[in-house]
Design a protein around this nucleic acid. Structure first.
Length: 274
DNA sequence: CATTACCTGCAA
DNA sequence: TTGCAGGTAATG
């Protein structure tokens, strides 16, 4: 699914629905390899009986704070969906985690591709998760100067760096392509080769693209669903992403697609050359 | 740096 | 049947 706007939307939806609820049972852990830490057995035992205090987001992780100083961290990777469903809802074959809540509703984690990941963390584990990621692009501290620090001294190309969660949190293939289109920057520019003006423009493009997507509940072209199981609405605003062959909204030239950093990459060859 | 691995399903 | 998909860590 999901990049920052989708994970943010899902986390907000879950917060509204499960804050204060107790996990009375882990009714299914159908793909134990999803659990990165601790062992699957300890994960189930540790989660049972816990109460959700709040749900938030760090990078592309849904971070659910529990009592007893524990945190349930869920990463949706490519196709994961975390949602709350009613008491009678039946998990399908792709639903790998089912938590029964004390009001009889259920938290389902469904993931067709099984790339999703789960962690049950103590305080040091949560700190390590935080420390392993770059700055949050919508945080107050993320100024153009902060972006300059991300880019400085990096000989790598722009797109691979922006996709690297250790460099900057929350961006993925959609929003990197969109931000670069808005900023009129080519994805293979050297990261440390941008002018101050270009950095400022890129900073604004990253923030505006993410903010609009959050306002519209994320982007859905296939799998993504929010915490209620509903699609997002931002995909109609894609300028470049998955629009190969369509006219660039800025200059009318056909959007081109090529592979960069192992990912489909969409650019306007005319007005995004820089 | 690019490529591969992890998985499944869908469209070309 | 092939290629591709919203991620990330681990390889050459």
């Amino acid at each position: 699914m999901p990049e920052l706007p989708e994970v943010e939307t899902a986390a907000r939806d879950l917060d509204v629905q499960i804050r204060g609820c107790r996990v009375v049972a882990v009714e299914r852990l159908g793909w134990p390899r999803m659990v990165e830490t601790p062992t699957p057995e300890a994960f189930v035992a540790g989660l049972t009986g816990r109460i959700f205090q709040s749900v938030g987001r760090r990078a592309k992780w849904i971070v659910a704070t529990l009592d007893s100083d524990l945190t349930l961290a869920m990463h949706l990777r490519m196709s994961g969906v975390a949602m709350v469903v009613g008491p009678q809802a039946l998990p399908d074959a792709h639903t790998h985690l089912v938590l029964r809540l004390d009001d009889d509703r259920q938290l389902h984690f469904r993931d067709v591709r099984k790339f999703g990941r789960l962690r049950l963390l103590d305080a040091p584990g949560l700190a390590a998760l935080d420390a392993s990621h770059g700055p949050e692009p919508l945080a107050a501290a993320f100024t153009p100067d902060a972006l300059a620090r991300v880019l400085s001294g990096r000989a790598t190309r722009l797109k691979p760096l922006l996709l690297d969660p250790r460099a900057i949190a929350g961006l993925g293939n959609i929003y990197v392509d969109e931000a670069l289109w808005h900023a009129q920057l080519g994805p293979d520019r050297r990261a440390d080769g941008l002018s101050v003006a270009e950095i400022t423009t890129l900073h604004g493009a990253i923030q505006s693209v993410l903010r609009r997507a959050i306002d519209l509940g994320g982007s859905t072209f296939r799998d993504y669903r929010n915490g209620y199981g509903q699609s997002g609405g931002n995909q109609v605003f894609f300028a470049a992403y998955r629009r190969a062959g369509e006219p660039c909204p800025r200059c009318g030239t056909a959007i081109a697609r090529r592979v960069l950093a192992g990912r489909g990459t969409h650019i306007c060859p005319a007005c995004q050359g820089g």
